[in-house]
Design a protein around this nucleic acid. Structure first.
Lengths: 348, 348
DNA sequence: CCTCGGAGCTGAAACGAGTCAATCGGGAGG
DNA sequence: CCTCCCGATTGACTCGTTTCAGCTCCGAGG
């Protein structure tokens, strides 16, 4: 091991110091408090850094003291545009705070989510935003208890944690009310699994709207997941019903389901909204570009992400007097062709 | 500062050792080579870890020796489903190798991309996959030269780097050939900016197909970006042309543009494919669910990601004898209603 | 001539975990 | 009773960086 360079691997500050003919401390000063170092020395050190290709070792730096200046958002499913929009809001806030943001895709896999949480905690990230797979509360609670700030995004949380959600009961109510006002009486809710809190909330909201109208009924068509493929399968099931018993409108738990359902309807020769009106949820970009532009319940996605990140930062920065908040935003209904009122239709 | 616990912050192995009445080395052995530790001691240490809520400090661990067991994929735009599909392939390969994957969204922002690359290098990740914003080659070359394995995804790279791409010239040729075979002669290419290599490749491919057919012509309608909004604007421009001069078919550089274009056509009362046939590119999930199911050039997205990750791992594992590879996949045309032959049209 | 002060720089002590040669204890063998 | 051996455990050292008390000059003030 000859002096001046390590035999292998990346050069360290020590190598830089040796080669520039200064002490370790001076190299550190050049990097962290350049005003303390004289111009010629600073120049020499910087040149040496350039020549050697020295790159700070973040592990050592973090070990010694500084935080990680890193946030992570554990996303439920990056293939879902809803979450990427939320992520954009998060990124915006992280940028503003000068923090880097890592996206972790749990892909609805509890084991992978757990793996990410372990790793992030071991890496001592400044904070974690998460849309959890299931209510693996214990895991998240443990993380928070040990000192990592956590904000739950798009899922409810108890009073001992920050969360940012959209009022799903209200959203369900809005959707169902709209269908009832366009004279539908047999309405199907398409979505699942019921273990997802939002799904049940939207059912609840739709249920309360339907309960206000005598003679109206809501049937639930449970799906195994909230994606396009499941929407298609739901479409098959609906199309298989005799027309007299078939619902005249479907309220889907998200736009992916709605798009799949819509697609299957078209495929099977049923018309939307004539044979089946459809309301989606999330109002993703593609909802408007669909075969029949989709009526959908819109959520303030970027705002959701931005707010969540701000809460996280507030918690991370002022750890002492932090008050956990559960922020709830209100969704809005966006009406498009998939529920257009048919003049010919008469209530059953 | 009472013994057994640090005054603040997370407990360390030393705290565990003290409280369990063993030495530091034993705690380390319990965690890393449990077979060396007697049953009762191991149990006692594990209990103490549980009680204290000890969590390994990954920084210290990495500093001492072990790698980071982490990969990162710097994505151009997580809002584009194409990339999330690629990311899924990457995740798959990372999982198989027991590595964690962080997604970094550059959002087409060169500064953010640079920030991520800096951070990742400082964190000594095992390797970086990247779909770069522009040809910021110097930055990436520097990263690679200093020892971080890099694989470029969905963009070409020189011989001194691994890359995984899809043959865009071929894709352009496939698309244009299909339009020519369905008797179109005035074809528009919609896409841009031209600085993007893939855009020019697809133009080249389309151009060579058109050149093979006497009397056929290709006009290029350049856009500022590859998203839905730009597609709509292109639609306005096309619709504004007198019907006699208007192209009868459009080949879009990606599906987002195509969906926007399609949407604008429908809005302006033009029919697809009657007034304008449309071919997209990428065959994202929503292409099939569009107003008129979209003919599109399909790329093996997950395979792309998986292969890229495997190349990266090969480079990271066997650093000595690594041969850089430039893998090129072939795209496939998926024909749907947006280019259906008018004569073959089935009555509704 | 001595002292003081400050700019510039130094060097050692952390930070937390992994490693490994050295040590301890106790049972078997002589 | 003494050795030897072996499994279990120890603790000093290391990784790369930050920090900080302290050192050395050197010029100004007394």
């Amino acid at each position: 091991m000859r002096p001046g360079t390590s035999p292998r691997g990346t050069p360290s500050m020590k190598d830089v110091a040796l080669r520039a003919g200064v002490s370790l401390g001076t190299v550190s000063n050049v990097l962290n408090r350049p005003e303390l170092v004289s111009e010629p020395t600073r120049r020499r050190v910087l040149d040496t850094i350039e020549v050697l290709g020295f790159v700070r070792n973040e592990s050592a730096r973090q070990l010694r003291g500084g935080g990680s200046r890193t946030l992570a958002y554990v996303v439920l499913d990056t293939s879902n545009p809803f979450f990427t929009d939320v992520a954009r809001g998060v990124q915006e806030a992280a940028d503003a705070a000068g923090l880097a943001l890592f996206l972790c895709n749990s892909g609805e896999d509890a084991a992978r989510q757990a793996g990410f949480l372990d790793l992030l905690e071991q890496q001592r990230v400044e904070g974690v935003l998460i849309t959890p797979v299931d209510a693996d509360e214990p895991r998240i609670a443990a993380l928070a208890r040990r000192g990592t700030p956590v904000v739950v995004v798009d899922r409810g949380a108890g009073p001992d944690r920050c969360s940012v959600t959209v009022d799903d009961v209200l959203g369900g109510d809005l959707a169902a009310t709209h269908l009832l006002e366009t004279s539908h009486r047999r309405i199907a809710f398409v979505g699942g699994p019921r273990a997802i809190g939002q799904v049940t909330d939207r059912i609840t909201g739709a249920g309360q709207a339907v309960a206000r109208v005598p003679g109206a009924e809501l049937t639930v068509l449970e799906t195994a997941a909230l994606n396009v493929a499941e929407g298609r399968r739901a479409g098959e099931r609906l199309a298989g019903l005799p027309a007299a018993r078939r619902p005249t409108a479907a309220f889907c738990a998200n736009d992916l389901l709605a798009l799949g359902l819509l697609q299957q309807m078209v495929r099977l020769g049923l018309r939307v909204p004539d044979d089946l009106a459809i309301v989606g949820y999330d109002d993703i970009e593609f909802a408007e570009a669909a075969a029949v532009p989709l009526t959908s319940v819109s959520q303030p996605r970027q705002l959701l992400g931005r707010t969540a990140a701000q809460l996280l930062l507030a918690e991370a920065r002022g750890p002492g007097d932090h008050e956990h908040q559960q922020v709830v935003f209100a969704p809005e209904l966006v009406v498009r062709a998939s529920t257009r009122l048919l003049s010919a239709r008469t209530p059953t």
